[in-house]
Design a protein around this nucleic acid. Structure first.
Ligand SMILES: [Mn+2]
Ligand SMILES: [Mn+2]
Ligand SMILES: [Mn+2]
Ligand SMILES: [Mn+2]
Lengths: 161, 161
DNA sequence: ATTGAAAAATAGCCTTGGCTATACTATCTC
DNA sequence: GAGATAGTATAGCCAAGGCTATTTTTCAAT
């Protein structure tokens, strides 16, 4: 605390441990630095799978941003090794890019399905998942998956034990 | 799609409706623009409640950022009407600030409790909630609350019906 | 009252992620 | 093959959110 230290009887505080809190904020800031990259790579993978190629105009249209914004971001993706680009040609995912895309798609799907499974409407789940996915740790994803497995029990053939 | 339109047999696509997707991305970008404000206001409320005052050094220490970063952010909070500041003195929440803080605290608590309730460890729930909270819509929060009410049933006095 | 230390303010820098306007290239069509 | 046009690149602007280094102010202790 600052110079003006507070002492006195230990009362129930709305403040949690400072080191724990700073860790949360740091982790969250960290996630924020990668969420755009993740969304781009995931979207590029989808576009390629769907149409055989990913073009800047399509990416821009899907994201709702201007084309030069995409062009700039693609340079970041190149410098980070996720895509390759041939001038005036399309975008291709590197090995690392494909791996990241796969992770993101899976994670995105888990989060969105989970939201639906607890009663959130598909439209809202779609929107919320787009933001929440980037802050779901491996442990939380496991919990989501476990819940989904419980909520959607594996169907048995008629006449189960 | 771009000039090179894809036609052909309708195959199961990994792409969702474009308008829906752009709406998700837009909403997510929007949430991102306010999450920092929300974290600051929530933290300031906690500091005031706990120690009677919120000082820049304490905010900086809790967030894990430098003091000038906080000073700059406080100007944004002032310009947006959430706090008042007396030079070289502490920070005070305006009416709007208190209202926002209350909303954020409640939302934060719901998200964190919910994660715990589905089996996520308290430490991970703390971290993930710090980021996820800003992307949880009213509808999702309601679903979380409903789940919590089910999972943690209101305790009855001994001898319930 | 002085003064030293803590806190706040300010200056100046950087990166990221937006935008518009404009120039360039590839490709399709004639 | 020459244009038209769709798509891409580039230049230049802005705001947000980080940082360090330095100055200014307050406050507590002598
Ligand atoms: Mn996604
Ligand atoms: Mn996303
Ligand atoms: Mn919070
Ligand atoms: Mn937060």
């Amino acid at each position: 605390m600052s110079k003006h230290e507070k002492i006195g009887p230990e009362v129930e505080s709305s403040l949690i441990n400072a080191d724990a809190q700073v860790e949360s904020f740091r982790q969250t800031r960290n996630n924020r630095r990668t969420e755009l990259v993740e969304d781009y790579v995931e979207l590029i993978a989808d576009l390629i799978e769907d149409g055989g190629e990913a073009r800047q105009v399509d990416i821009a249209q899907r994201l709702g941003v201007a084309q030069p914004t995409v062009a700039k971001m693609l340079k970041r993706l190149i410098s980070e090794g996720y895509i390759q680009q041939r001038r005036y040609r399309g975008i291709f995912l590197t090995e690392a890019g494909q791996k990241l895309a796969e992770l993101c798609r899976e994670r995105h799907h888990i989060v969105e399905s989970f939201l639906c499974s607890i009663g959130v409407s598909p439209e809202t789940a779609r929107i919320d998942a787009e933001g929440m996915e980037h802050h779901a740790s491996a442990e939380t994803l496991e919990a989501f998956k476990a819940f989904l497995a419980r909520a959607t029990p594996p169907r048995r053939v008629a006449g189960q034990a």
